[in-house]
Each structure stands twice: as structure tokens, then as C-alpha cells.
């Protein structure tokens, strides 16, 4: 799969502008992941895990700074991009602990999720590094962060084995299935989003024009400035409208 995507990755990372934007985006994802880990450290009662989560969070914060700094260096003078693009789906960076409600998570599930997220990130970053021969600084950044992700991957697995003892394998499979389910939900909601946008846009152009005309006529009759409110309006009714 990775080798199939390689030409696509090459295309994505070839443009300095897109590279800058992706790195800035990764910085945000890493910072968000760091905050999730801080939250995990605040909630756990296991002192070893608390210290490990804090150390991991510090790494994520450092990665965020590194990505941001390189992104800004690459993007000097470029205007910021508005909104997401299709490429954000194809080269996601680290997903961190997205969609995870830290306070509702069992410790074992959380560690399994961290392990899988870090593994995916290490794999992705290695792929990105392999197509960045033309940009040694960004390449070394991915190599450096990728090594950290491998540490994260290993410590989370070791701790999962400690916390869940015999059940770690089952938890990992469960986490894999959850990631798959979440990926499906993301895809399904994206498709639903596109479909509803198309339908609403059709309605906008087919159904709304006569009402738009009326609304525009009504707007012309409105006076600028204050609207005087009726004396009885102290909203005693408590209604929705």
C-alpha cells in the first residue's frame, strides 16, 4: 500500500508551499496530541504512567515546535491557506489521540491506542522522509521525530504489557478495530457531508430564488440604526422564538 502511495507522497511533498502547510498542520496535530497526553497524565493514578505521559507530552510539544519552525522557514512570505484539502486525508501525519475521550478511556485501551497511533506515525514519517531527498532539512526532521515515535511506540507497548498483563494482545486487536471503525466513520461522515452539501446547494439554487427576492425587497424597507422594541418585551414567555 505504502509503495502504491509513494508517487502521491512525492507529489504532495514536492511543492515547498504545500510542504510548509503540511508541517504547520502537523505542528497543530502534535500539540493537540501533547495536550491529550497531559490530560491522560492528570487523570491516571499510576505514578509511573503519569511521569511517562508527561515525558511523552513534552516530546509532542517539542515536535510541534520543530514542525512549526521548519514550516515557517519554508513558508516565509507565503499567504496562509484557508480550509483543508484532499491531501490532508492522504498524508495525515500523526493522528495522535484524536477522537479519544481521555477521561472515559480504560488505561489499557489508552495505551493500546497510543501504541498504534505512534506506530502509524513512525511508518508515515519514514515514508515522507523517503520522498524528501530534495529537502535534507525536512527529511532529517522527519527522521528525528520518527525515531522519537519509535520510542513512544515501544514504551507504550511495554506499559501495556505491564498494565494489562495477559490481555495486551486482545486490547491491541480491539484498538485496531476501533481505529478501523473510526476511519470508516470519518469516511462515511465525509461522504454524507459531500452529499448533503450537494443536495442543499441544489435546493439553494432551485427553491430559494423567489424567497430570496422577497427577502431582498423586505431588506430595502428596513431603516438603518436602532430598532425600537415593544414595551412589553421583557421575554417573560421563555419561548424559543
Amino acid at each position: 500500500m505504502a509503495s502504491l502511495l509513494r508517487p502521491l507522497y512525492w507529489t504532495i511533498w514536492a511543492s515547498p508551499r504545500r510542504r510548509a502547510q503540511k508541517l504547520l498542520q502537523f505542528a497543530e496535530v502534535e500539540a493537540e496530541g501533547g495536550r491529550d497526553l497531559v490530560r491522560a497524565s492528570e487523570l491516571t493514578v499510576d505514578p509511573v504512567l503519569r511521569r511517562l505521559f508527561l515525558a511523552h507530552a513534552r516530546d509532542e510539544e517539542r515536535h510541534a515546535r520543530m514542525f512549526r519552525s521548519r514550516g515557517l522557514a519554508l513558508g516565509v512570505g507565503m499567504p496562509p491557506r484557508a480550509g483543508n484539502t484532499m491531501f490532508d486525508w492522504i498524508s495525515p501525519g500523526e493522528r495522535g489521540l484524536d477522537d479519544l475521550r481521555i477521561k472515559d478511556e480504560h488505561l489499557g485501551s489508552l495505551l493500546a491506542f497510543i501504541h498504534l497511533s505512534e506506530s502509524a506515525a513512525a511508518r508515515d514519517f519514514a515514508e515522507y522522509s523517503s520522498v524528501l531527498g530534495h529537502d535534507p532539512l525536512t527529511r532529517s526532521l522527519f527522521d528525528h521525530i520518527g525515531r522519537d515515535e519509535e520510542h513512544h511506540m515501544r514504551y507504550s507497548l511495554a506499559q501495556l504489557r505491564r498494565v494489562a498483563s495477559g490481555g495486551s494482545r486482545a486490547l491491541l486487536w480491539k484498538a485496531r478495530l476501533r481505529r478501523l471503525w473510526k476511519a470508516y466513520l470519518r469516511l462515511a461522515s465525509a461522504i454524507a457531508g459531500i452529499m448533503s452539501t450537494v443536495l442543499l446547494t441544489i435546493q439553494y439554487f432551485v427553491l430559494l430564488p423567489p424567497f430570496a427576492l422577497l427577502a431582498k425587497f423586505a431588506m430595502r424597507r428596513e431603516q438603518p440604526g436602532w430598532t425600537v422594541l415593544p414595551p412589553a418585551l421583557d421575554s417573560k414567555s421563555g419561548r424559543e422564538f
Binding site: 448533503s196 446547494t201 430570496a212
Partner: peptide, 20 residues
């Protein structure tokens, strides 16, 4: 809804988002 109607057709991008 009224704002979308008043700024028709310039609101075509924001209308689906606002409705959803």
C-alpha cells in the same frame, strides 16, 4: 436563513454549512 436569502446568490457556499 434570512441572511442567506438576502445575500443570494453570494451565500451559496455558506448556505449548506449554515443549514447543516
Amino acid at each position: 436563513l434570512t441572511s442567506s436569502l438576502r445575500s443570494f446568490p453570494h451565500s451559496w457556499r455558506s448556505f449548506p454549512k449554515a443549514m447543516k
